[in-house]
Design a protein around this nucleic acid. Structure first.
Length: 194
DNA sequence: TAGGCCATCTGGTCCT
DNA sequence: AGGACCAGATGGCCTA
């Protein structure tokens, strides 16, 4: 199932309903405005806002139980939630930045996080392999970093293969061409939507 | 409707 | 001590 072309969703921050009656008001807790539009974050869909009163995120009371939480404790929790949201937003921005530098697969299809990481890894490997191959085949006999780099790369690959001790690493992984091949295959499969 | 993906909440642990 | 980081849980949205 590949569906990455849906609009980005934004869930409204929950207003922490565990407070005792009267303290769950915005004044009693954190303002918790959600992602500020000023930071370039997308506005939250109305449906998310409508459905976010108490839903979303887990509602399981912690070991200590929600019952007698104090105001200061609730305040800290809300602040912590907000920081966590911001942290995740930064992480997502980084993912987006990464998507934008990975050579393009299908413009209409947003890569998932796992796809982004996997493609990026193989892209880096293929670029590394290409660079090393080019530098190693450069003017034989000339002093330069190329051959050494290539040897170092090969040593690393051999070590990784040994560490993979079950042979989970494919035979092609040890060869620079293997990375390129793998990346090309992956690109192809994404293009096909498989 | 099932499954994938995601946002959010939450408590625990690590780090400064 | 407080913030960052992490992983589990939960529920919403979307597509096949």
């Amino acid at each position: 199932m590949k569906t990455k072309n849906r609009p980005p969703r934004r869930r409204a921050p929950v207003q922490h309903t565990e407070a005792t009656p009267g303290e769950g008001t915005p004044e009693g807790s954190l303002p918790n405005p959600g992602p500020e539009p000023s930071k370039g974050l997308r506005s939250r869909p109305a449906r998310a806002a409508a459905g976010a009163r108490g839903e979303g995120g887990r509602r399981r009371p912690g070991p200590s139980g929600p019952g007698g939480r104090r105001d200061s404790s609730i305040q800290r929790r809300l602040e912590s939630n907000e920081r966590e949201r911001q942290r995740m937003h930064k992480l997502n921005n980084a993912f987006q930045a990464l998507r934008e530098v990975i050579p393009h697969v299908r413009a209409d299809k947003k890569l998932s996080k796992i796809e982004t990481l996997t493609l990026a890894k193989n892209y880096i490997k293929s670029l590394t392999a290409t660079i090393l191959t080019m530098s190693s085949s450069r003017l034989p006999g000339l002093e330069g970093p190329g051959p050494k780099l290539y040897q170092h790369y090969q040593q690393q690959q051999q070590q990784q293969q040994q560490q993979a001790a079950g042979g989970t690493l494919g035979a092609t992984e040890a060869q620079p061409q293997g990375h390129l091949q793998r990346y090309s295959t992956q690109i192809h499969s994404f293009r096909e939507g498989t």
